[in-house]
């Protein structure tokens, strides 16, 4: 599924590099990749657009679906990335809904609405769409990354990712 307006993204839409992450908020490997991605984004600046898509692995991560719903519910109030970041920065509190509600209030979000929407799975079709787009692109676990549409199978560390991105930037542009 090509990156488009439906996606949550950071950076400009005409950036030469597009990095897509399929992630699960409760996945420890995604949690470990989170600060690395922040550094990668800083390093590449305006040449990078970063996209996050949901890939909750619900049978091993019982809170993953709730977390994805919560981030999407925050997105509906215009604060996806704030919630996305907070979830990854507070993975150890996953499941403590009161803890996250406090942060939502701090972010001037309607926490009651988020809780209500997350409980009824208001964004489940969007999450499912993300998930299936991942399955059809060959995602088999989290995190899985795509650089300009090509799966990145290297180690999710700072140096190798920056190197792969810079190499992709030099390569003649293929599909985005």
């Amino acid at each position: 599924m090509p990156v488009g307006d439906r996606d949550h993204s950071e950076g400009t839409s005409d950036a030469p590099l597009v990095l897509v992450e399929y992630g699960d908020y409760q996945c420890p490997y995604c949690g470990a990749a989170y600060p690395i991605l922040k550094r990668v984004q800083k390093e590449l600046g305006s040449s990078l657009r970063f996209v996050f898509r949901n890939f909750p692995i619900t049978n091993s991560h019982p809170q993953a679906e709730w977390a994805a719903e919560t981030a999407e519910a925050a997105a509906a109030q215009g604060k996806f990335w704030e919630m996305h970041d907070f979830l990854y920065e507070n993975q150890r509190f996953m499941g403590d809904e009161a803890y996250f509600a406090k942060q939502e209030t701090k972010l001037k979000l309607d926490a009651t609405r988020i809780a209500r929407e997350a409980a009824k799975g208001a964004y489940s079709s969007r999450i499912e769409e993300d998930y299936m787009s991942g399955i059809r692109s060959g995602v088999n676990g989290t995190p899985t990354f795509f650089i300009n549409g090509v799966r990145y199978d290297g180690y999710p560390g700072f140096e190798p990712m920056v190197a792969a991105l810079k190499a992709a930037q030099k390569a003649p542009s293929r599909k985005k």
Binding site: I57, T58, N59, Y131, I135, N140, G141
Partner: peptide, 14 residues
């Protein structure tokens, strides 16, 4: 394996 079997369980509706 766990990931693989778990993934198939999750993709079951498809």
């Amino acid at each position: 394996c766990s990931d693989e079997m778990g993934l198939y369980a999750q993709v079951m509706p498809e």
